Amino acid sequence: AMRDIMMIYGGLRRPILVLFLTDGRLQSDWEIEEILIKTSRFPVFWQFIGLYGEEYGVLNHLDEIDGRHTRNAAFLKMEDFDDFMDSGFYRTIFTNTAAWLEELDRKQMLS
């Protein structure tokens, strides 16, 4: 799915926010790391949201991925679907996105 998103939106020079819901049980941590490293030079932010799951693997350690040009991903684990109604959920999403946009601006990646 991440590769498909990049095929469609990767060439745009406008910022793109991808909300990626998952229950965990990821197929391949190294593939996710590879995509995050490669896409860190594009204005695409991956906000992973874990819902009702376990075994989130690399998503629990996004800050430890070396080689990224920008901090282009964040992970938020939710215990309940009702958390979507919580203002803290949206505040976290907007805080993560705002920090990333500031980084893009500093690195002159926005056209």
Rank of each mutant, 00 (worst) to 15 (best):
1 A>H: 12
1 A>P: 05
2 M>V: 05
2 M>S: 09
2 M>Q: 11
4 D>T: 13
5 I>Y: 10
8 I>W: 10
10 G>Q: 07
12 L>I: 11
12 L>H: 13
13 R>P: 10
13 R>I: 14
13 R>S: 15
14 R>Y: 15
14 R>D: 15
15 P>D: 15
15 P>A: 15
15 P>W: 15
17 L>F: 11
18 V>I: 14
18 V>N: 04
19 L>D: 01
20 F>D: 00
21 L>S: 11
21 L>H: 08
23 D>L: 07
23 D>V: 10
25 R>T: 11
25 R>I: 10
26 L>I: 11
26 L>Y: 07
28 S>A: 12
28 S>P: 02
28 S>E: 07
29 D>Y: 03
30 W>G: 08
30 W>T: 12
33 E>W: 02
33 E>H: 02
35 I>H: 08
36 L>D: 01
40 S>V: 00
44 V>D: 09
44 V>A: 13
45 F>Q: 03
49 I>Y: 00
49 I>E: 00
50 G>K: 00
50 G>T: 01
51 L>C: 06
51 L>P: 02
53 G>V: 01
55 E>Y: 03
57 G>V: 09
60 N>S: 01
61 H>Y: 07
62 L>Y: 02
62 L>S: 01
62 L>P: 01
63 D>S: 13
63 D>T: 08
64 E>D: 11
64 E>W: 03
65 I>E: 05
66 D>P: 03
66 D>F: 03
66 D>G: 08
67 G>D: 10
68 R>I: 07
69 H>G: 05
69 H>E: 14
69 H>A: 15
70 T>A: 12
72 N>E: 08
73 A>T: 03
73 A>L: 04
74 A>K: 02
74 A>M: 03
75 F>E: 00
76 L>Q: 09
77 K>N: 11
77 K>H: 14
78 M>D: 09
79 E>N: 15
80 D>W: 07
81 F>T: 13
81 F>M: 14
82 D>N: 13
82 D>S: 14
83 D>E: 15
85 M>K: 11
88 G>E: 15
88 G>K: 14
94 F>K: 08
95 T>I: 07
96 N>V: 03
96 N>A: 10
96 N>R: 06
97 T>F: 12
98 A>S: 14
98 A>I: 04
100 W>H: 07
101 L>P: 02
101 L>Q: 03
101 L>A: 05
102 E>M: 10
104 L>H: 06
104 L>F: 04
104 L>W: 06
105 D>Q: 12
106 R>C: 02
107 K>I: 04
109 M>H: 09
109 M>W: 11
110 L>S: 06
111 S>H: 13
